[in-house]
Amino acid sequence: MKIALAQISTVLGNTEKNLEKHLKLVKKATAAGADLLVFPELSLTGYNLKDLTTEVALSPASSPMFRKLLEASRRIDLVVGFAEESEHQTGLVYNSAAYLSRGNLVHIHRKVYLPTSGMFEEGRFFARGGEFRTFSTRFARTGLLICRDFLHYGSSYCLMAGGAGLFIIISAAPGRGASETSGQGFETSRMWELMGETISFFSSAVVVYCNRAGYEDGMVFAGGSFVYSPFGKMIARLPYLEESFKILEVDLSEIKKARRSWPFQRDERPELVWRSLERIVRGNHED
């Protein structure tokens, strides 16, 4: 399959301008024959929203902007990031990722781990998502994660246990650490790559990571989006720091081959992990 990565910068809080950019890239990716186009975290809104969070939030069921994206998804599968106004829990806004295909909303993942320390304050403005669930796409069993979700390895475990052969992580990760040992990118870029390499190999899955570029209030989004093969090999990495658009050929038949070489998934025991976790969680509660 051909996956297009849109490592873009956005206009903070201006969903219309950002939508325009999305639709332009949809055209570009479609013309190049891509099957799936992935945008970064909060690609429709920008990241550092603060009080704008509730103002730019939209409800996929009723938003005219979302309708345009659904329309665009008739030609190419899309993953977009947005602030989601909850339909059922009035007033709540989630940091969400949507998978759109053939005019349908296939799946929404709401970010579970909201970084709220140091330079991050997501927990102040967003409600927390409640689950990790895999879903079927026309390519593979698929899982969606948003940025920090991927750094908690329990999230990837759930996707793996749910049978995902395609992990898609959308991100708005700022770069930090520019010491002499940092190489071409920030020190934190290595952290994402380390996880990408590990999770792709030990889950025998394709890992697609799409990060942002650009600046917001002094934050430097690190770029460096990447794709790892189910054998843990880096298929490609986009440049650090700058905006970039790239279409990559990914061989999905490798998922099967990797799982035959290393049957981690066959031998996995989620029910045993579940029981052990249950004991641990109960034990912690009793303390």
Binding site: A178, E180, S182, L241
Partner: peptide, 20 residues
């Protein structure tokens, strides 16, 4: 605390350009 001057230059010049 030595820096990577190439990366720092890229980050700062990009910042000046974007913010201007």
């Amino acid at each position: 605390m030595k820096i990577n001057p190439e990366l720092v230059t890229r980050a700062i010049t990009g910042f000046i350009k974007a913010e201007t």
